[in-house]
Write a protein that binds this DNA or RNA. Structure first.
Lengths: 248, 248
DNA sequence: GAGTGGTCTAGACCACAAA
DNA sequence: TTGTGGTCTAGACCACTCG
C-alpha cells in the first residue's frame, strides 16, 4: 500500500535516500506535524513495514534511529509510543546542573514575572518571528535555601497564546509547553560565558554587582528545527556547576 | 574459529548478552588494550563474522555501535579502521569554543610552563593514582591577537614519562598524547563555573583581578574509563562562548 | 494465549575504491 | 577486476506484557 509520505521514485527529492531513511523521515514528519502526537501509540512493526513497503528489518532500522534520538519509546510486549517531553530523561537532558557532591540539582521556583512586549530586532531574527509580539518571562529559582539562578525567557505570543492564563507556571517549562501549547522542545543550544552580575541579578541572587555569574544563552528548538524559546540564564555557581559530557 | 574474547556460553558474565553486544565488547576490548591500535585496519566483515561466530548482519550491528561512538571509521570500498584522535572531528569534540560570528575558535599557544610535582590528595583521588608524581602543565593561549585562555593540566608521570623531552608541546594535546604515549582520550567531563580572576589569570589574560572568567574543570578519560588528565581552563569570554548542543 | 518488540540468520544485490 | 562496506529481504525464534 502506498503512502504520500513514503512515496516511490516519483519523488525526486527522496529517490536517492535509502529505504530505511525514507521510512524514518516519513515517521519523523508524522510526529512533527501532530499526526502522531506525544504519547500516541504507533502501529505495530509488521503494519508499519507493510505501509511503507519495506521489510521488517528495514523498518526496525528506521525505528531504531528515532528511538536513539529520543523521539519514540519502545517496550517489548507493549509497543512503540511517541515520547513525551514529560519523561524524566527528557527533562534532565536540558538541565545540566550538578552540585559538588555529585548530585543533580533541580532548582525550585522562587518568583516569576510575566509581561507582553515587542521583540527587539535581534530577537525577531533569532526567533524567526513574522509578528514581533513576545512574552518576557523572568524567573528566579533557588536550591538548598538560596537563590541560584535568574532566567529571562522570550516566547513568541503566536506560539504561546494566553500564556498569562496559566500562572503560576510549573517548574518544568518544556513539558508544560508541550501539553499546553503543543510546542515540543527537542533540541537546544547553550552558549556559555562568564558575566558580571548586573543590578537586577545582584539583587535576585544576593551577590555584589559585578560578581561572576555563569551565563547560558539558549535557543530552544522543536522537531522541525524552528526556534521556540530564547533563554538567558544567570547561575550563581557556588557549590553548583553546569556539567557537560563530551565524547568522540 | 573460536576466540577467547568472543567466547561461548561457558563465560558466565557474558552469557546473558546478545551476540551483537558480545562482538561489540570483544572488539572494544581489542581497541582498548592495543591489539587493534589507532589507525589499524580491521579484518573485513565476513572474516570478523566468522571469527565471532555470528552472521553478517549481527556483526554489522556491533560495528555500527562502535562507529557511532567514534571508535572506528568505515568507508565503502576501503575497509574499517580504528579511529585516531588526530581526526578533525575528534579534536573538535573536546574544543567547544565559538566566536560571536558563528565561527569555531582554535586558540594558538602563547606560552607554556612544565614542572614535575607531587599530586594533592584530591588529585590522587581524581586521577586514581598509585604513585603521586605528576606533571603540572600551564598553558596560555590566544585568539585574534589577545590571550583568551589559561589552562592548568595535571598529568600522571606514570602515563606520560619523559613529557619534558617533547617541548614545546603541540597545540592539540590529545592527538599528541595518543601518538607519543599511547594515551587516547575518548571522553571528558567538564564542570563549568564562573570564577573571579586570580592574580596569575589576571596577568595572563590582561584583565583586572576579580574579573569574571569561565572555568572548565575537566576530567579526561581513555577507552577503559580511566582518568588520564585533569585540566582547569579559565576562559576570557569576550566575543567567545563555550557552546553546548543539547538534545533529547 | 495473543500480540508486541528484540534477536539472528543466510543470502542477495548494490556502490564505491584501489590495484 | 577484486574486495570492501551498505542496503534489503524473508523468515525464524525468543522474551516480554497483558488480558
Amino acid at each position: 500500500m502506498s503512502e504520500t509520505d513514503a512515496s516511490g521514485p516519483e519523488d525526486a527529492r527522496l529517490v536517492a535516500l535509502p529505504l530505511y531513511k525514507r521510512a524514518e523521515e516519513a515517521m519523523r514528519a508524522r510526529i512533527a506535524d501532530g499526526r502522531w502526537p506525544p504519547g500516541a501509540r504507533l502501529p505495530n512493526e509488521p503494519r508499519l513495514a507493510e505501509e511503507f513497503g519495506v521489510s521488517h528489518g528495514t523498518l526496525r532500522k528506521a525505528l531504531a534511529a528515532l528511538e536513539a534520538q529520543g523521539l519514540v519509546e519502545r517496550r517489548p510486549g507493549r509497543g512503540t509510543r511517541v515520547a513525551r517531553t514529560t519523561d524524566e530523561a527528557a527533562v534532565y537532558a536540558f538541565l545540566r546542573l550538578w552540585d559538588t557532591g555529585g548530585e543533580r540539582v533541580i532548582p525550585e521556583p522562587l518568583s516569576e514575572a510575566l509581561a507582553e512586549d515587542t521583540a527587539t530586532p535581534a530577537e525577531v531574527e533569532e526567533l524567526a518571528l513574522a509578528e514581533p509580539r513576545v512574552w518576557r518571562l523572568t524567573r528566579c529559582r533557588g536550591h538548598a535555601g538560596r537563590a541560584v539562578s535568574l532566567e529571562r525567557m522570550v516566547l513568541p505570543v503566536a506560539r504561546f497564546p494566553e500564556l498569562g492564563a496559566h500562572r503560576p507556571l510549573p517548574n518544568s517549562l518544556y513539558p508544560f509547553y508541550e501539553s499546553a501549547f503543543r510546542q515540543s522542545v527537542v533540541a537546544a543550544r547553550d552558549d556559555l560565558t562568564a558575566e558580571p552580575a548586573d543590578a537586577e541579578a545582584a539583587a535576585a541572587l544576593s551577590v555584589a554587582e559585578g560578581a561572576p555569574l555563569l551565563c547560558a544563552a539558549r535557543v530552544a528548538r522543536n522537531l522541525s528545527g524552528e526556534p521556540v524559546e530564547l533563554r538567558r540564564s544567570l547561575y550563581l555557581t557556588a557549590g553548583i556547576a553546569y556539567r557537560v559530557d563530551l565524547s568522540k
